[in-house]
Simulated assay, not measured.
Amino acid sequence: MRVATLVGATVALPALGHSAMADTLEASAAQRVATGKPVLFTADQDALVADLADVIIPTTNTPGAKAAKVNEIIDVVLKDCYKKPDQQRFIDGLTQTQKMSQDAYGKTFSQLDNAQRIEIMKKLEADAKAQKAEMARAVAGQQDVQIPAAKRNVTPFFSMLKDLTLMGYFTSEIGATQALEYVAIPGRYDGCVPLKPGQKAWAI
């Protein structure tokens, strides 16, 4: 796992100092590699995150999120860069996803076909949008919305999942070198470079 790359991508997250964060991420990644086990998730949660991420970035003409082992990156980053309440909200989201799958189809998410998985993801996305809208109304002081102040600025599960998936994928070797244009040793910095039709965005 190329965890050192993540340090630049996670500086905006709730975390330790930059150097301490790098050491902590590297230690957790090394632990995961040595044991073959997740550092935060259970084995079932880890497998579910891999399947969820693969719906967000499926394999097309380039490998998807599961091939890039995005679940491993999410496991480490969530453990070391997020506060306990955020970690719990993510794990509660995984539990809710399984409940939605069972209620809708009588199966776990990983047992669903691709169309069914997409439908569950659409429901998660809709729930996240509704939650954000409700929080915005609460912040605006609308009297019909009763949300404790501590819960008025939280990131919904689906939003966390999507953000972490995109971060994990595009900082992975597969994402940076196959989904994006990659130059191992770049030359001068050009702030605005026109792209040709169909050209991939540049990895940074």
Rank of each mutant, 00 (worst) to 15 (best):
R117D: 07
F109W: 01
Q98A: 09
C81V: 00
V7Y: 08
D80F: 01
V70W: 01
V154M: 00
A104M: 10
I91E: 07
G93K: 01
M1H: 10
Q98Y: 07
A68I: 07
A136E: 15
Y189L: 15
Q31N: 08
Q146Y: 05
D163C: 03
Q96T: 03
K37N: 13
L180I: 11
K84E: 14
A20H: 05
P194W: 10
I56E: 02
T62G: 03
A115Q: 14
V33F: 09
A47T: 13
H18Y: 05
M21A: 05
Y182D: 10
A12Q: 04
K200P: 09
A27Q: 15
A22T: 05
K162A: 00
K123Q: 15
V77T: 09
T108L: 08
M100H: 11
Q102K: 07
R152T: 01
Y189N: 13
V154I: 09
P14S: 08
N61M: 00
D144N: 05
A50Y: 11
A15G: 08
I174Q: 11
G187S: 13
T165D: 01
L13T: 06
K107C: 02
T171C: 04
D54L: 00
D54N: 14
K196Y: 14
T59F: 06
Q102D: 07
P38A: 11
P63T: 00
W202L: 10
Y105K: 02
D54V: 05
G64S: 08
T165I: 04
A53S: 14
T5M: 12
A140F: 15
I147S: 03
T42W: 13
A201T: 08
Q98D: 11
A176R: 10
S172G: 12
D23S: 11
A184K: 15
G93M: 02
C192Y: 15
K69T: 10
K83G: 06
L52R: 05
E134M: 01
A15P: 00
T155K: 03
